[in-house]
């Protein structure tokens, strides 16, 4: 799948921002600390949502995206994101100005943040045409990364360290599943064409690229996947663990860089079954 910068930035920044808002909502800092934590969380999440708009060819029609929450995870995300940000903002404002806010409001804000991250992940996890994504490890590692990133900025260091290690394990499990996911899904040029025997593409329908090959049958940069995996682990997990007790903001920055690497791989390595019609993967 095409690793669109808008989607990588969106899911990474909004994941970190929503994770931070969730932890701040639960741990209830007061006064200036609340202002800082909720302000940064809102800024990160809003920047992510802003980046996602660049993925739309007709952004003015994004207003319709709130309507189909009954069936579409993307619509659910669109509904949940402003609800989560609004609830967290209110909670943060009360904590900053009055030093107190109802416990239920904090719990609701944290739940809405988690549900927003879950709905982002479910957009991908429900696509059966991409076997690497159609797996429980996708929502699991999206949620774990958001929780760990937020904890780096808002939670006690031991908790953040434990969450980081947990997220690292889930990301590794997702990579492990991904290595063989396409083969295990069992689709081939033969099942794609309903032909019997050994089937291979003889001539493509067009010699140049088209929307389908650019968006779904591309193979950009998979050659450096191994190096990026190493970078994702080093920047996203190991360096933050080392920096956690020295400078949590630096640890979070390094973590974000690692998440960006992992998210790039998440798209670039995902094979879509339509590529079988184009003689790949």
């Amino acid at each position: 799948m095409h690793p669109a910068p808008s989607l990588i930035l969106f899911s990474s920044l909004s994941g970190l921002g929503l994770g931070l808002l969730a932890w701040a909502s639960l741990l209830r800092p007061e006064g200036g600390a609340a202002l800082l934590a909720f302000g940064l969380g809102l800024a990160l999440a809003a920047a992510g949502l802003g980046a996602s708009v660049f993925h739309l060819r007709r952004p003015a029609r994004a207003r319709f995206a709130f309507s189909q929450w009954r069936s579409s995870w993307l619509s659910r995300e669109a509904v949940l994101a402003p609800l989560a940000l609004g609830t967290a903002a209110l909670h943060g404002l009360l904590l900053a100005l009055r030093g107190e806010s109802p416990l239920a409001l904090g719990l609701l804000a944290a739940l809405l943040c988690a549900l927003t991250v879950l709905s982002t992940a479910m957009i991908y996890a429900t696509i059966r045409a991409v076997p690497r994504w159609h797996h429980w490890s996708v929502p699991a590692h999206f949620l774990a990364l958001a929780a760990a990133g937020g904890a780096l900025l808002a939670a006690p260091a031991p908790l953040a360290a434990a969450l980081l290690i947990g997220a690292g394990v889930l990301v590794a499990l997702h990579w492990h599943h991904g290595r063989t996911a396409f083969a295990r899904a069992g689709q081939s040029a033969a099942t794609a064409t309903a032909l019997e025997g050994r089937v291979r593409l003889f001539a493509p329908p067009h010699t140049g690229p088209n929307y389908v090959t650019r968006e779904m049958a591309g193979q950009v940069g998979r050659a450096r996947a191994g190096q990026l995996r190493l970078l994702a682990l080093a920047l996203g997990l190991l360096l933050p663990l080392a920096l956690l007790w020295l400078s949590p903001p630096l640890a979070a920055l390094s973590h974000l860089a690692g998440v960006l690497c992992a998210r790039w791989l998440f798209f670039a390595e995902a094979e879509h079954v339509v590529s079988l019609y184009y003689g790949r993967p």
Binding site: A189, T193, L195, E196, G197, R198, V199, R200, L201, F202, A203, P204, P205, H206, Y277, Y278
Partner: peptide, 10 residues
């Protein structure tokens, strides 16, 4: 779109 495939019977 019209693709062209080669089929080798088993």
């Amino acid at each position: 779109r019209v693709h062209t495939f080669e089929r080798l019977p088993e």
